[in-house]
Write a protein that binds this DNA or RNA. Structure first.
Length: 480
RNA sequence: GCCGAGGUGGCAGAAUGGUUAAUGCGACGGACUGCAGAUCCGUUUCCUGGGGGUUCGAUUCCCUCCCUCGGCUCCA
């Protein structure tokens, strides 16, 4: 197991990671509330934790990665009412879209997506423990609230001082609460909404308790990693600590808290509430998963990231091509080498550099998941490969694989180059090859008008043609 | 107001108590090309919010001010 460090939001320091039960690692990441389509901001968080999961597995940890789905809450109920549908069905639909987008993005590391409503017995049980132990109370309306005053550590994660919280617009001054900072863990049923029976009357789970009931069941009273967006620190994660540690009597419930920075659009956080979102599906359709993943992993995960509709993804596409084209070239050469048998060996120095670079990539990432630093190393490698004197043609298959290994690392850990053979020169589109042959004949007889016409026609179909020294090649590009 | 994260080149964004402040995008020049693109080479030389302090040396550590963003019981 490779050692790595991670910034822990609770202690506010970079710490050496030590699992509770090596080599096993439990990781819980707050998923989304699927009341609307996922956007690029969501992707930032989930792509990052996907990289974390890929890295941990590569480094020899046996990771169990859980990402919950809040498939019932006020927003879902409100949205469903607007659309005249059932909130659970609405959540199901948006979650299916989310999964499809994640699949396309290569976010394949999550072991299990528990739905809140599938854990109602666990939630009721945890609420009961909290009530029995005096941490929570039933209000007259049948809701159950957690009494923040009973948990002195409340505020430790966020640095908030309960007394200083502004009882503002959002902090409901609810007559049912004994204290304004108390939060609901069991919501009394409203007619027409989904409800479950409980010792306190019919109702549904509150937001925070769904996570703590699920984590206690799936990961135990204490587990290794908890992740989520930075906007969840308060109140959500603060409340989770209070609930878990009060219910189980064990602390700390979470050994390492990881929070991903926000994606900003024109200086503001991209969010459904603000309405300034770029739907993930649009980004994927226009640019494909590679540029999106590169854009999102090309920064330190904790800080804010500025997203510009006009520039960010087009820039990322250019940058991504610098990495992907060499990767594709290796793939093509390997296909040839496999057929042709033995080939040359690479210069010793280059081979040694490839090997040491892979190690450097791992050590770079092992320093608090420095994806940005790793990407910089990858660019350095493709520059090295492009230097005069580096001849890849004719290398043996093992040699090609060795020189490709840093890029394979990027595929395995960062999830790049996963968009299935978009490589040119394949026989997947014979029509394109026919057109290119016709264009080659036109160029041969000096009929450049015809050659350009064919090129324009292919461009119209989303096929970009490049005349290289070794002949034309094509690739798919987004149209428009 | 309180809590938290930030302010680095045209843009996005790294890093370190010390030789030319990474990387990418963009721009410019060149090679190559019928042209374009891609690729390669070169250039983009005096970029670390303001002011103090510590130090031989600060972008980095300390103080202060200004600004931006996030959270303050919707949020990835």
């Amino acid at each position: 197991m490779r050692r790595f460090t991670v910034y822990d939001s609770r202690t506010r320091e970079v710490r050496l990671f030590a699992p509770l039960h090596p080599p096993r690692v439990g990781m819980y990441v707050c998923g989304l509330t699927p009341y609307a389509a996922a956007h690029v901001g969501h992707a930032r968080t989930f792509v990052f934790f996907d990289v974390v999961a890929r890295a941990l597995r590569r480094w020899g940890y046996r990771l169990f990665y859980v990402q919950n789905v809040t498939n019932l809450d006020d927003k879902l109920i409100a949205r469903a009412a607007e659309e005249g549908t059932d909130p659970l069905a609405l959540a199901e639909r948006h979650f299916a879209e989310y999964r499809a987008a994640m699949e396309e993005l290569g976010v394949t590391s999550v072991n299990y997506y528990p739905f809140a409503t599938d854990y109602v017995p666990e939630i009721v049980a945890q609420v009961r423990v909290l009530v029995d132990r005096g941490f929570a109370y039933r209000a007259p309306d049948g809701s159950v609230y957690f009494s923040v005053a009973k948990f002195p550590k409340f505020g430790e994660l966020s640095g908030q001082n309960v007394a200083a919280l502004r009882p503002g617009a959002r902090l409901e001054l609810d007559a049912d609460k004994r204290s304004p900072e108390d939060f609901v863990i069991w919501k009394a049923a409203t007619p027409g909404e989904p409800a479950w029976e409980s010792p306190w009357g019919p109702g549904r789970p509150g937001w925070h308790v769904e996570d703590t009931a699920i984590t206690e069941r799936l990961l135990g009273a204490r587990y290794d990693l908890h992740g989520g967006g930075i906007d969840l620190i308060f109140p959500h994660h603060e409340a989770e600590i209070a609930l878990s540690e009060s219910a189980t009597g064990e602390a700390p419930s979470v050994n390492y808290w990881m929070h991903g920075g926000a994606l900003r659009l024109a200086g503001e956080k991209m969010s459904k509430s603000l309405g300034n979102v770029l739907p993930l599906s649009e980004a994927l359709e226009a640019f494909g998963p590679g540029p999106v993943r590169l854009f999102l992993t090309n920064v330190q995960y904790r800080g804010p990231l500025e997203f510009d509709r006009e520039r960010s993804l087009p820039e990322a596409r250019e940058a991504y091509d610098r990495l992907r084209l060499p990767y594709d070239r290796f793939s093509a050469l390997l296909a040839q080498a496999g057929a042709a048998g033995a080939g040359r060996e690479p210069p010793e120095e280059l081979a040694a550099q490839a090997t040491s670079l892979v190690e450097r990539l791992d050590t770079t990432l092992a320093a608090d998941f420095d994806t940005r630093g790793a990407v910089a190393l990858l660019f350095g490698w493709v520059r090295r490969l492009a230097e005069p004197g580096v001849e890849l043609d004719g290398l043996s298959a093992p040699a090609l694989e060795l020189l490709r290994s840093p890029l394979d690392w990027a595929r395995e850990v960062l999830g790049l180059f996963a968009e299935g053979g978009a490589a040119s020169g394949s026989d997947e589109a014979p029509g394109i090859e026919v057109a290119l042959a016709a264009r080659a004949r036109a160029r041969g007889r000096g009929d450049f008008a015809e050659a350009d016409r064919i090129r324009a026609e292919l461009a119209h179909r989303g096929i970009e043609v490049e005349d290289r020294s070794d002949g034309p090649r094509w690739r798919r590009v987004p149209v428009g």
